[in-house]
Design a protein around this nucleic acid. Sequence first.
DNA 1: TTCTTTTTTTAACAAAGGTGAATAGAATCA
DNA 2: TGATTCTATTCACCTTTGTTAAAAAAAGAA
Lengths: 184, 184
Amino acid sequence: MEQKNPKAFTSSINPLEVFKEIEWKALELKRGDFLIKAGQTEKYLYYVVSGALRAYTYVDEEEHTIRFGYKNSIIAAIPSFFNEQPTDIYIEALRKSTLYRAKKIDFEKVMQESVKSLSYYNALLKDLIATFYEREIDILQKDPAKRLKRVLERSPQVFQEVPHKYIAAYLRMSAETLSRLLNS
Amino acid sequence: MEQKNPKAFTSSINPLEVFKEIEWKALELKRGDFLIKAGQTEKYLYYVVSGALRAYTYVDEEEHTIRFGYKNSIIAAIPSFFNEQPTDIYIEALRKSTLYRAKKIDFEKVMQESVKSLSYYNALLKDLIATFYEREIDILQKDPAKRLKRVLERSPQVFQEVPHKYIAAYLRMSAETLSRLLNS
DNA sequence: TTCTTTTTTTAACAAAGGTGAATAGAATCA
DNA sequence: TGATTCTATTCACCTTTGTTAAAAAAAGAA
């Protein structure tokens, strides 16, 4: 069974397999490129083939890392994707990355045509809700060591893919605290 | 516009209006009664007419308050409702409460029969995702005063409905810290 | 490869918030 | 109503984690 978190607003479903009727367009990002920036409205869902990305937002000048995208994960500015309002999320490539993207309108078209697609879409939504819920429980833990443990057990590979300073931010701790925890 | 959070896994939609075809059964809870307990699978969606409830879960013996339900809000053990697996959530009435409930299977039936219902259902899901996202940003704030401010501005009435010690837990701070903040 | 930039580690220090305890105040129930 | 239980406040103390700074290590670019 594939791990679920902390992929970016993700699902254990491989959308390229499931939504074959949809046109998936390949794209290449280099380190520092953005998939989306605050103010834009999310029109795509992305599937990461290789590389690493992070989603973050600002509240009162403070940056908060909220999700990662890496191999086999879905990433997008999900709230904007669903409500079609401008997002406050930035998604940035942390290194050279290859992804596929599909248009929201293409999803909707396929959804109307096929009951099977609709049920897959529902599965995707369920997975999304599960991910959000897991995330909520993760960050509620008071003890930084517990927060680390949960994510480390669920998604050990993220520690290979993503610089620790971003993982620390994702776990709402300083890079120094994460370093202390990993070396003890 | 109605506030969105921290209702319990909620929506600004009034489901009694929108899902008229569904049979909504009234129920009365007294203080201390449970809507659902860990281990059970959520088969209902509840709409709160009056009263106050809280949803909480345990991680390593520690209790975490995750949502509240009160007047005009929806509450349920949402992840379980969607994935049909046993939940780890408890939902408890904090005082005498009146609610309506509808069966999941009735939702599904209506969804198949009417495109309009399906689109309302989608709206409900969007709202749910927005709520989860707001919640994530809320609890990520480092400063307890900021976490309080966000919820206080969005849902001032929760401070009338719910004992502060639960609000403190919801805001991941001690009751003492909340008291300090409110009296300064 | 070498150079440069970025990331990680370590340490000393400060400060924020939790804990425990005791009191005061509210709400609930018989 | 009065009694009891539950909730909120206050204080002193202490632990934990963030901050600042500097050095070491690693990764990326040329």
